[in-house]
């Protein structure tokens, strides 16, 4: 298991390749990456992500550990950035490796659902209309109940 919280960009292709290469008994690797998306109006200049240093790493490790306990997985990778990013930049990625694909897919979805509402990150949009803290969505909280 590897959990990394960093300001710098990461190389998604290389991370995915490294993660998928290390396992000989894993038949499935699932990756997900989240990307800064422009607003419908097309005027998002930047997304700023604040986090809670000290708690962030622990919270992510707790979520990753729970995934390892609940599914038959060989490995889990979580990379999450903070700081200022522009549309198109990758914010975060998760990867799961499992003997079979169902575990890899489900664990990746579980990780994403929990990262959304249980990891101490807050997004602020900077655009032509000023700044706006992104509000948590009710459906993101509701998504946790399926696990």
């Amino acid at each position: 298991m590897r959990v990394t919280v960093q300001e710098a960009p990461f190389d998604f292709g290389r991370e995915a390749e490294d993660f998928a290469s290390g396992h000989h008994d894993m038949g499935a690797v699932v990756t997900f990456t989240g990307i800064v998306r422009d607003l419908a109006t097309g005027d998002l200049d930047a997304m700023e992500i604040e986090h809670y240093p000290g708690m962030t790493q622990k919270a992510l490790e707790k979520i990753a550990t729970e995934a390892l306990e609940r599914w038959s997985l060989g490995d889990v990778l979580v990379i999450h950035r903070y700081g200022r990013m522009t549309p198109g930049e990758k914010i975060m990625m998760v990867a799961t490796a499992a003997p079979h694909r169902v575990d890899a897919f489900e664990a990746a979805e579980f990780l994403m659902d929990y990262l959304k509402s249980r990891a101490p990150f807050w997004k602020k949009e900077h655009g032509g209309q000023g700044t706006n803290w992104v509000a948590a969505k009710d459906e993101d909280e509701a998504a946790l109940t399926r696990w």
Binding site: S117, R118, A119, P120, F121, W122, W133
Partner: peptide
């Protein structure tokens, strides 16, 4: 003790 709005990670 830390106070914050609902989190928006991912």
């Amino acid at each position: 003790v830390a106070f914050f709005p609902p989190m928006t990670g991912g």
